[in-house]
Structures are given as structure tokens and as C-alpha cells.
Design a protein around this nucleic acid. Structure first.
Lengths: 205, 205
DNA sequence: TAGATTGTTAATCGATTAACAATC
DNA sequence: TAGATTGTTAATCGATTAACAATC
């Protein structure tokens, strides 16, 4: 209907739908239904249909959804129908693992700049790129017009790094540091902290 | 009041509170308020008080919360007042980074078993432990009574590994594989997929 | 005491679900 | 056609927030 604000919680589920659809496609399927998708994800079929209805009509009554078509639509909605360059700050164990991870490419992202402030790491090759001096972050990021970054530095450095990234024009930060980061309005932050997930499970154990 | 079911969404916030409180403590603070905590986390003070009220009364009117005391209480609630042993399956780049990560220890977890099915990796030392043959998973995990596991294997292997883990008695799985996993009732699963987080941000870019 | 902040209630807000006409 | 499944509405359910008495 009218172009209304999409609830965050709806947006947050779209990548999950996209992932499951891609999986179905890999398994050779061409068509699916909200029922099947819901069963796979542990989500009600009504919720899936409701979520999608915020963006348009993508299915056919009686049939379901053309997987290829729905994937294309979701990619467009999430803006991952083209590749995003990502800057990575921190080339330690975790940063290196991220740099080498080849699951980014086919899902819309490419790590294109890697920074560290350790002289022993600067200048080294990592997954096809040279580790850059973190001091150059403010120059190189705007130069390449990069708008997404991942932070894989110790908690103590995370807020400082985030501030520098924001100054450099970064609009979205995925932080692996186990700490809350403050950013100005208009900058997105997402967190990954394995301990938080583990603690969510021990409660139920 | 009466011992009622705690909403999942409340439980999911407790580790965040615990993390922020620990941070405040590290900064040398002894007392805080729902207002201060909320400001740090971008959460309303009412929500924090409401969440905590599910478990008891931990504050003092006019004063706020004794940080040390509240940390102790939250640790107890989340059952991380003692250390949990964790099994790790997959000793690739990501698995190795997880094995070496020293942020688990002081927050209630210790990786105590590491598995891989690559003969080149089995028998190797990793972060003080010997990488075990994944085929021994069903023996070693019950032997040690381990109930939590992390999966850092390719998507194709994740469901199989999860099945084996469940058979071995695992009750909580933290999966890094970009795929949905099906487990029986009573087994917890949490997911970490950086691409999902990145895609949640590009929508707003 | 005066000021601050808790714990809790009730009101509001928003998300999920059930149900079904439309239709492939 | 008969069967299946969509998109959407309305009802339900649950979570968040505003407000305030209690009290430190």
C-alpha cells in the first residue's frame, strides 16, 4: 500500500528467508511455499506471508513462490543485488579468519581493506590483500567510498576504532568486540559476541 | 511473585546487561542505575527494571544497583557462576580463532575438546589441546559430560555434526554455519552468521 | 528533609496468529 | 473442477512504556 515504515523485526528476518531460499535452490528446488519455509525455519507461515507483504506480492495462490524470483526480490530489497566493499579493522586470529572466509563473496560482500595497528602485521599479505596501517583508515576508506566495516579488535580499542570509522564515512559497523559502541544517528551497528549466545543457552540448561 | 515462565526476549537481554555491568565495574564504578545502564545500551530504564523484576528485587530506591551484587545475581540466573566446558567441532580458520580466543574464560566458558575430520589436523596441538578425530565425538563428549558445543564446519556438514552432537548429549549448540539446523525438543540452538548481520544493515544504507 | 530511583501497575503500542475470500 | 496457497483483515497475544507510590 502506501510506502510505510518497515518494522526492524521484519527486516531482521529477511536475510534468514534469503538464506533458506538459497539453500532450497541449491537443493534443486524451484518452488516453495510459506508453509514449507516456515517449517524449515520454525516460523509460522502467516508470519512469512505477512513479512513479505510489506514489500509486495511475490507469490501465486495455490502454487507458492518461485524461489529464483523471490531470491532476486529479497536481494533487491536488502540491496545485496550488487556487491558491497567492506573494511576490516583488526588482523588478529579473528580478523584473519574473517579475511579468509569465502562465504562473503556470493552473498553480497567483499573485504577490500584490512587494517591493523601492529607494526608486525602491517605490510603483510592476508587473503590477497596487504594489511594497512590503521592510521591510514581515515584516508583509504573515503578514497574507496567504502561504507561498511567490521571491527575485530580488543574491547578497549573498539570505541576508538568505531569513532574513526564513522569519521571516515562508514555507515554500518559489524563489531566482534564484546562491548557496546556508541555511534551517531544514522550509523548502524550490529554485534557478534559468542559469549552472549552461550549465556542465552545456559539459562535453559 | 509466583514462579512464572520468563519471556525469551527478557532472557536474551540479560547477557547484555551482564556485559555492560562488568564493563562499568572495570571502569571502577560500584553503583549504577537503570537510567545509566539504559543510556549506555540504548534501552529504556523502565525495560531494564521490568526485566530484572522477573527475577527479584536487586536495587535500592533512591540509590540504584550495587554493581558487584547485580553481576553476581545475573551470573547466578544465567548459570554462569560456574565454568561450562564447551566442545568445538571444526578446526579451520574460524575454529582455530575460537580456540585461541581468550574472552571465553572469564565469562563462564572453556573450550575443552576440539574436533575435526581432516587427518592433517587430527593430532595437532591447538591452543593447548590436541585436535581429536570427529569420529570420537560420540565417545569423548559423554565421557566428559559436556553439554555445550560450537559448530565451525562448512554448511554441508553442519546438520550431520549437529545430529551427532545431540546424540552425544549436547544440550546447546552455537552454530557458525550459515544454515538452519533442526534439533529435537529440549536442545537449544543459536546462530552466528556475519552475512545476516551485514544484510540487516545494507537495507538501511 | 529533599532528591533520586526503585518495583509495579495500568495503558499503550506493536507483533503474531487465525481465519478466509480470492484465485491459481 | 477440487485442492492448495496466497495476501490481508481482524482478533489475540505479548512487550514496552509512562506514571507513580514507596522508600532509601
Amino acid at each position: 500500500m502506501t510506502e510505510t515504515q518497515i518494522p526492524d523485526i521484519v527486516v531482521s528476518r529477511l536475510p534468514i528467508y534469503l538464506r533458506a531460499l538459497t539453500r532450497l535452490q541449491q537443493e534443486g528446488q524451484h518452488i516453495t511455499s510459506s508453509g514449507e519455509l516456515g517449517r524449515r525455519l520454525g516460523i509460522s507461515s502467516a508470519q512469512i506471508r505477512k513479512d513479505l507483504s510489506h514489500f509486495g506480492e511475490f507469490g501465486k495462490q495455490g502454487t507458492g513462490y518461485q524461489i529464483e524470483f523471490l531470491i532476486k526480490q529479497l536481494r533487491q530489497i536488502l540491496k545485496v543485488d550488487h556487491e558491497w566493499s567492506v573494511a576490516l579493522v583488526g588482523a588478529g586470529d579473528l580478523g584473519s579468519a574473517l579475511a579468509r572466509y569465502n562465504g562473503f563473496r556470493n552473498r553480497g560482500f567483499r573485504i577490500e581493506l584490512i587494517f591493523d595497528n601492529d607494526p608486525a602485521k602491517i605490510g603483510r599479505e592476508l587473503s590477497g590483500y596487504i594489511v594497512q596501517d590503521a592510521a591510514l583508515l581515515g584516508t583509504l576508506i573515503p578514497q574507496r567510498g567504502i561504507r561498511l566495516a567490521m571491527i575485530a579488535v580488543p574491547a578497549e580499542a573498539a570505541q576508538f576504532v568505531a569513532d574513526e570509522l564513522v569519521k571516515a564515512g562508514i555507515k554500518g559497523i559489524l563489531s566482534y568486540a564484546p562491548i557496546n559502541i556508541n555511534v551517531p544517528e544514522g550509523v548502524q551497528v550490529q554485534y557478534i559476541d559468542p559469549v552472549v549466545h552461550l549465556q542465552r543457552m545456559t539459562f535453559y540448561c
